[in-house]
Write a protein that binds this DNA or RNA. Structure first.
Lengths: 261, 261
DNA sequence: TTTTCAAATACCATATATGGTACTTAATGG
DNA sequence: CCATTAAGTACCATATATGGTATTTGAAAA
């Protein structure tokens, strides 16, 4: 909190965003003093900030003298994402088809600011708690099928930069934490044309993902399929891999991509 | 734009939100001067605001000297919605079941700041263009099944206030624009226990919706079903109405509601 | 009822963010 | 190539948002 480094910014906006992000991170409603204790803003100013954000719908207050929470405006504003939306439209048909064919959870993800972000999702039959939410982000490229695809298609120096920034932290006991092992995995991903993840992010979940390219040949996203281990045997890997690759290729075609291999 | 009425607010934040909302409303990427021409903010200050918002991920810039668009952060922040999320969790199973039984589009909506907001959606087989996006808001309570349910369960004076604010504008040639007719419709809704809308918001689309109550007996949302006219005949109305009512009742039970009728 | 505490308001001198002007950079087109 | 335009930077006097202190309100407990 507090990147007041740059001169060409507005302190008041930084503070407002600090407040928003703190409330969001807490995942529940917060009292005024809880917020006060966790952001470095004087009482009077904080009151003004909270007021402003409430008036504009960026925060909600449960009652007159109540608790603060993130406003529904954020759901609403989460739309005006023009180019990512194009991707969503293009991918929709293939995702739906894949969902009907497999009954599994199908996801559309993209890379933004070196993090994976979930853009769209068609849920399978797993229980609610297993799902990520649309819009959620994951910085651990090394632990996710989608991330491996991104790593596999990245410029080597960008790959090094990204991997250096987050390292290879273990999310489960299956996470790849050895760089040589990861290099090998990346090569396999390149060879197969799809990425695979075996309980490396979450215990009990397997995932495959394949890349989508736009008309300029740029890698703009991935279509992924995920399922619990008991409904996604290792024997199914090739089959599901082929399927997500097909779905992703169809989406690429939709975007005007022509393979030049 | 520009509710600088209240004293206890931060002007800089108001401006930042003006910028965000303008960019969002345009539904595409905007150049600096396009933004300049449409918000009442001096050049220098606007630059600072855009900078700050970009640094914090609330806006994205396509390149160094590029176009501005809404940042993906909004997708991400659209989650920290604690209590609405509880509703989503509670409704999930019933919605899924309803979706499988009918193949239609199932939606979870709520009322926020006198507008209907779409919280969750399980899509049917209609084409992409027909769908609303999660988070989208509709102020026209009189033209939507969900809105009619809300009107039917509202305190009469709140109902009057809300209806007075927006009036009864016609969205299609089927929209109810006569108050007496609407009163009657509201009574029917109360009697049936579900709301119905026949192409009143969008030509060619029919919808039904039933209310969800929480443990305090408060009306907190609706489960709705929508479909194109050719797959939702008027003869099906009773059947679908019963189905959404069942789904909504199950969800209410999930939330700890006990009917005291 | 009164007490207590959190939350919000009021006031105002001062620190500070603002927004003119002028300048630099980068991309476009002739 | 130079000319033109849009985007961004630098500077600094001044208007203005800020954040102390003191006060008021409201809700819940005693």
């Amino acid at each position: 909190m507090g990147q007041n480094d740059n001169q060409n910014t507005v302190p008041a906006i930084h503070r407002a965003i600090d407040v928003i992000e703190f409330i969001s991170s807490s995942q529940r409603e917060l009292s005024f003093s809880e917020i006060m204790d966790n952001v470095d803003i004087p009482r009077q100013s904080l009151i003004r900030i909270l007021n402003t954000l409430c008036i504009r719908g960026f925060l909600d207050k449960s009652s007159q003298r109540g608790l603060y929470r993130i406003g529904l405006k954020f759901l609403y504003l989460g739309h005006g994402l023009p180019d990512k939306f194009e991707l969503r439209t293009a991918a929709w048909k293939s995702m739906k088809a894949l969902s009907q064919k497999t009954g599994k959870t199908i996801e559309l993800s993209s890379l933004d600011r070196d993090q994976l972000i979930l853009l769209e999702q068609i849920r399978g039959s797993e229980e609610m708690s297993l799902y990520s939410r649309v819009g959620s982000v994951i910085p651990y490229l090394h632990a996710v099928s989608v991330g491996k695809v991104y790593l596999a298609l990245m410029e080597p120096d960008k790959r090094r930069r990204v991997l250096k920034k987050i390292g290879l932290p273990a999310m489960t006991r299956h996470t790849i934490t050895d760089m040589a092992r990861l290099e090998q995995e990346i090569q396999e991903t390149q060879a197969r044309g799809y990425g695979f993840e075996d309980q490396e992010l979450r215990e009990g979940v397997r995932r495959v993902a394949a890349p989508i390219f736009n008309s300029n040949g740029k890698h703009v996203g991935c279509i992924g399929l995920s399922a619990a281990v008991f409904s996604f045997e290792l024997d199914d890997l090739d089959q599901y891999g082929r399927m997500v690759r097909e779905a992703a290729e169809k989406t690429s075609a939709e975007l005007g991509y022509v393979s030049n291999s």
